[in-house]
């Protein structure tokens, strides 16, 4: 029996917002409790920027793990409150209207709108409240122990190549016909996601994805607002 529903998958970073997880990590690190902790964790976040940049082209799972190390020992209370502050004061300014228009159109066309993000739930769920049209959000989750972040991300880490694996399972669970579905990606590791759907689109792609999109003759969109 063939699937009856369709979906539109959106990578949040690059498609819907112009900033990524490093930006959030540096904001959080700079708001740690106590000057010493702030300096230490901000330095740690800063040092992980080039590592993330290098790994981000290919292995974003490891890049995300490195980026989120600066959350270590941060209380859940603090993460939640600062996430709210980050979304309200920073992230909403970085929402890309063109991306939101894509969301709106997908919803209007009757697709199930799914947003994938490398960001942590505390931030992304709050952003989701502000972005209408989102049916489902799949994002990373910090691991907590005794009310404090361990600095690790809970499995599965969003952002790596395993996107294609969960996509099949997700499609089966929600009765989705992927050949009629859409996907908007930005990074190299989104290749699996894009190649699994019938209507892929590269948005503000990084060099790896741009090259792949050109070779596969996928549409490419570039926008900055």
């Amino acid at each position: 029996m063939s699937a009856t529903h369709t979906a539109a998958f959106f990578r949040a970073e690059g498609v819907l917002v112009s900033s990524g997880v490093m930006h959030a990590a540096m904001f959080m690190a700079g708001q740690r409790a106590g000057m010493r902790e702030r300096a230490l964790r901000f330095g740690q976040a800063l040092a992980s920027v080039p590592v993330f940049g290098l790994l981000g082209q290919n292995d974003r799972t490891l890049g995300n793990r490195v980026a989120h190390l600066c959350y270590r020992d941060m209380t859940e209370d603090r993460v939640v409150v600062l996430a709210e502050e980050y979304v309200e004061d920073v992230l909403l300014e970085k929402v890309l209207d063109s991306g939101v228009e894509l969301l709106r159109k997908a919803k209007a066309d009757g697709h199930r709108v799914v947003v994938l993000s490398e960001g942590i739930g505390e931030i992304m769920h709050r952003l989701r409240e502000r972005l209408r049209y989102v049916d489902d959000l799949i994002c990373n989750a910090l691991e907590y122990r005794d009310g404090k972040a361990t600095g690790k991300l809970r499995e599965p880490v969003i952002g790596g190549y395993e996107g294609g694996k969960w996509l099949k399972q997700y499609a089966a669970e929600h009765d989705l016909d992927l050949s009629r579905s859409f996907a908007y990606g930005t990074h190299g590791p989104d290749l699996l996601l894009l190649s699994a759907v019938g209507h892929p689109c590269a948005v503000n792609p990084d060099p790896t994805l741009r090259k792949a999109a050109r070779e596969a003759d996928w549409p490419v969109m570039d926008y900055s607002a």
Binding site: A33, T75, D77, R78, V81, E84, E85
Partner: peptide
Amino acid sequence: RLTELSALGHRKHLR
């Protein structure tokens, strides 16, 4: 925990 929550509450308010 409540000391940190208090500081965070003041942070929200003072901002």
